[in-house]
Design a protein around this nucleic acid. Structure first.
Lengths: 158, 158
DNA sequence: GTATGAAATTTTAAGGTTGAAATATATCCG
DNA sequence: CGGATATATTTCAACCTTAAAATTTCATAC
C-alpha cells in the first residue's frame, strides 16, 4: 500500500460533491426537456428527437451523412435511421447518394424542412430563454464556460 | 405597441446566451449518461432507468407509491409500471397493498435489491467522480449552487 | 483480380418513454 | 344511499433508444 486513493487525497469529500452536481445537472436537463417536448408536441406536432435532427441538418446546408448526424447528436446510428426515415416520409428531409461512395447517404433539409425548422427554432429559442430566465446573465455565462471546458476536456481525457 | 419585448430589454442578447447554455447542459448530461449507461450494462447487466428506480427506493425504507416514484424521477406513470414490473420479476423490489386504499401499491426494495443497489451505488459514485474529475472543486460547487437555485425557482415559477 | 479487412448503414431484439384512454377504487355531497 | 368527481394505476399505440449482428460497398494488399 503506497497511498490512500487519489480521490480522497485531492480534498475533503469531492466524490459526494460531484455526485450532487451530477444529480442537479440531470434534473435540470430533464425538467427543461420535458417542457420542450410537450410544447413541440402541442404547438408543432413533432418530437424533440426530430427537432434535434432538423437542427443538425439546418447548420449543414451541404448535407450530412447519417454517421455525422449520430456523432453530432450523441445518439446511436440505428437511432438516426428511423428518425430520418420519418422526416423523409414527411417531406422535411431528402436523401441522395454521394458520388463515388454508394455506402453513404447525404441527408439535407428540403425547402419545406427549412421552413418548418425556422418556425420551430424561433419558438424553441424563446422557450429556452423563458425557462432559463431565472438565471442571471453572468451566472449563465459562467456556467456555459465551465461546461464548455468540461466538454473540451472530454475528447482528450475521460 | 408599448415597448420592445422584455427579453431584448433585459440586456444585449440574452436569448442566444441562454440557448447556448442549454445546449451545453444537454450535451454534458448526454455525454455522462452514455458512459454511465454503458458501464451499468457491462458491469452490472442493468440499465440506467432501473438504477434510477432502485436509487429512489433506497432513500425510502418505508416504500414508495408508484406515483411517488414517477414524480421523483420526473418520468411518466406508465413508464414506472414497466420498470418496477421487471424489478419485481428479478426479485429486487416488492409490491404490497396499502391498508385502507386498494388503489395504491407500496414498492420497496427486497434485501437482494438493497444489496444489489449498494454495490451499484458505490461504483456509480466513483464513476461520476471520475467523469466530472476535470471540474475544479470550487467550480463544481458554484455550478451546483446555481442549478439548485434554478430548480427551486422552478416550483414557484415556470 | 481477388481475398481481406475497414467503413457506412440498416436491421433486429429488447427495453424505455410518452400522452391518452381505460380501469378500479375512494371521496364527497345532496 | 347513490351519483359525480377525483385519485392511483395500468394499458395501449407510437415512437425513441441502444448494442449487436447483418449487409453493402469500398480500399488495400497481394
Amino acid at each position: 500500500m503506497v497511498s490512500a486513493p487519489l480521490a480522497s487525497v485531492r480534498s475533503g469529500a469531492p466524490a459526494k460533491e460531484r455526485l450532487r452536481l451530477w444529480i442537479r445537472i440531470l434534473r435540470a436537463s430533464r425538467l427543461i426537456e420535458a417542457v420542450l417536448r410537450e410544447r413541440l408536441k402541442t404547438r408543432f406536432d413533432t418530437t424533440l428527437p426530430r427537432f434535434d435532427v432538423l437542427s443538425a441538418l439546418d447548420r449543414a446546408p451541404e448535407g450530412m451523412a447519417m454517421s455525422d448526424i449520430s456523432r453530432f447528436l450523441l445518439v446511436s446510428n440505428g437511432n438516426v435511421t428511423g428518425i430520418v426515415e420519418r422526416l423523409v416520409t414527411d417531406g422535411l428531409a431528402s436523401r441522395t447518394k454521394r458520388d463515388g461512395d454508394r455506402r453513404t447517404s447525404i441527408i439535407k433539409l428540403t425547402p419545406a424542412g427549412k421552413e418548418a425548422f425556422a418556425a420551430m427554432a424561433e419558438a424553441h429559442e424563446r422557450w429556452v430563454d423563458e425557462l432559463l430566465g431565472s438565471l442571471p446573465e453572468d451566472e449563465a455565462r459562467a456556467l456555459a464556460g465551465t461546461l464548455k471546458t468540461f466538454e473540451s476536456n472530454w475528447e482528450g481525457g475521460v
